[in-house]
């Protein structure tokens, strides 16, 4: 609606103001287009190179040209026929899925509690959770590793997953979204006889679906592409996640870029699927509908 409005207004204004305005406007327009175009190129180039490289023979991998000299699909055949790829794919899928579900549940549970209940120390708890956002993963991997080692979690799904089962960012996001759910709903549900968990589950949670969808996309992508920690915590190649596994194609002397890029190209498919599934939940105005007209 608004875009249509502005277009109509812009064009009628231009008609009234004559050609000078039109020229000025088209110059501004051109600059804007150029910036957007440049941005678009920057975003697309890596993907284009990934696909292009996956179609190249090893000898031309270091050619800058985007178009392969002899495009072929043998890399795909090789990767898909290499048994390890499926194993890594499944590992990644399991880990990313479980982590996503865990984050959706626990982040929103904690976010809800911090938002809708008043209790002593609530603020301190919240600040403590937030402050963990300031610590980069690179600093955390050593304590995580020592912890995993002493608990015997090295080389296990649990070892790969445990640091990410809940995230401070997710808690923060969900808390902020629950702030938009008016207390009236919660009180109405309390009068209707729901217990506190039912209120969370069947009243509050459905009202923050857009946030859940955003969080799901975020967490899934984050775990799907996670590299550093899975690399450190696993030595057994059958437990590798996809990014770790792909990077192991080849050795120190000879990295097989065309195979890595082929694997990477295939591995973007699930992220696309997740995005397409969840993005339709990201619609605004769900909460407002139950309120005053």
């Amino acid at each position: 609606m608004t875009t249509a409005d502005t277009e109509i207004r812009a064009s009628s204004a231009a008609l009234l103001e004559g050609t000078r305005a039109k020229q000025r406007r088209s110059l501004g327009q051109t600059i804007r287009w150029l910036i957007l175009f440049g941005g678009g190129i920057l975003m697309i180039m890596p993907i284009a190179y990934m696909i292009s490289t996956s179609l190249k023979w090893p000898f031309e991998v270091y050619n800058v040209g985007l178009i392969p000299e002899e495009p072929h699909l043998e890399n795909y055949q090789y990767v898909l026929e290499d048994g390890r790829f499926y194993g890594w794919f499944v590992n990644s899928l399991i880990i990313a899925t479980i982590t996503t579900i865990s984050n959706l549940f626990f982040d929103s549970l904690v976010g809800y509690t911090l938002c809708k209940f008043t209790f002593r120390g609530r603020y301190i708890v919240f600040i403590a959770i937030l402050s963990t956002l300031m610590i980069p993963t690179e600093m955390l991997v050593i304590p995580w590793y020592l912890m995993s080692q002493s608990f015997g979690w090295l080389d296990s799904y649990w070892g790969i997953m445990f640091p990410g089962l809940m995230t401070a960012f997710g808690v923060f996001l969900m808390k902020q979204f629950f702030e938009t759910v008016p207390d009236d709903f919660i009180e109405a549900a309390r009068i209707d006889g729901l217990n506190e968990f039912q209120i969370f589950w069947s009243v509050a949670l459905p009202m923050v679906k857009p946030a859940l969808a955003a969080l799901a996309i975020f967490v899934f992508l984050g775990n799907w592409t996670a590299f550093l920690w899975p690399l450190i915590v696993t030595t057994d190649t059958s437990l590798y996640t996809l990014p770790v596994g792909l990077s192991s194609f080849g050795d120190e002397a000879d990295v097989q870029w065309e195979l890595i890029m082929t694997g990477a190209a295939i591995s973007t498919i699930p992220t696309l699927v997740v995005f397409l599934i969840f993005q339709r939940f990201i619609i605004r105005g769900v909460v407002m509908a139950g309120l005053k007209g």
Binding site: A188, R190, I191, D192, G290
Partner: peptide, 28 residues
Amino acid sequence: EPKDRDIAMVFQNYAIYPHMTVRKNISF
């Protein structure tokens, strides 16, 4: 508890659950 008091309340903002049909809302 509110649910055990044999009362019902209508809120200024109505607070009807947006993700449920009218029937579901009332059945709550």
